[in-house]
Amino acid sequence: MTIEKQTTVVIPVDLLLDEVKKMHDAKYRLVQVGCGQFKDQIEINYSFERDLVFSNLRITIDKETQVPSVTDLYHAAFVYENEIHDLFGIGFFGISLDYQGTFIRTKDKHPFYNTINKEDSLRPEEEGS
């Protein structure tokens, strides 16, 4: 079975727009923007693809960090950025289409942030993340 190679480059938030611009200029397609909370850290992955090569840019931030929006380069990112804002409470500045927290309306605000359930305390420590 073919297992595709996937690369992940961790970059600081300041360089995000520059790096994304490089991908945009190199005609990469934005596959997705995804977010996850691991302990106190928030990780955002920007996935790109060209000619079946799949690569990621990753930023690691805390909740207070304001992230620059990439919607000027990839308009489609407004879907993902609004979603991350509504589910994790991460602030993005400069979104071309900002729903101001009404994209996905949930019962509790930011349901994905700091809501690891109680059984989690029984889990062994996370390794290497």
Binding site: V31, E126, E127
Partner: peptide
């Protein structure tokens, strides 16, 4: 194309599962 991001830490529960479905990508 659908993308399932899966991340585990060696326990029976995963840490994160995120799905980017084709419709989300086609809305713009």
């Amino acid at each position: 194309e659908v993308v399932h991001y899966i991340r585990g830490n060696g326990t029976k529960n995963l840490l994160r599962h995120r799905v980017r479905t084709p419709t989300t990508a086609n809305i713009p």
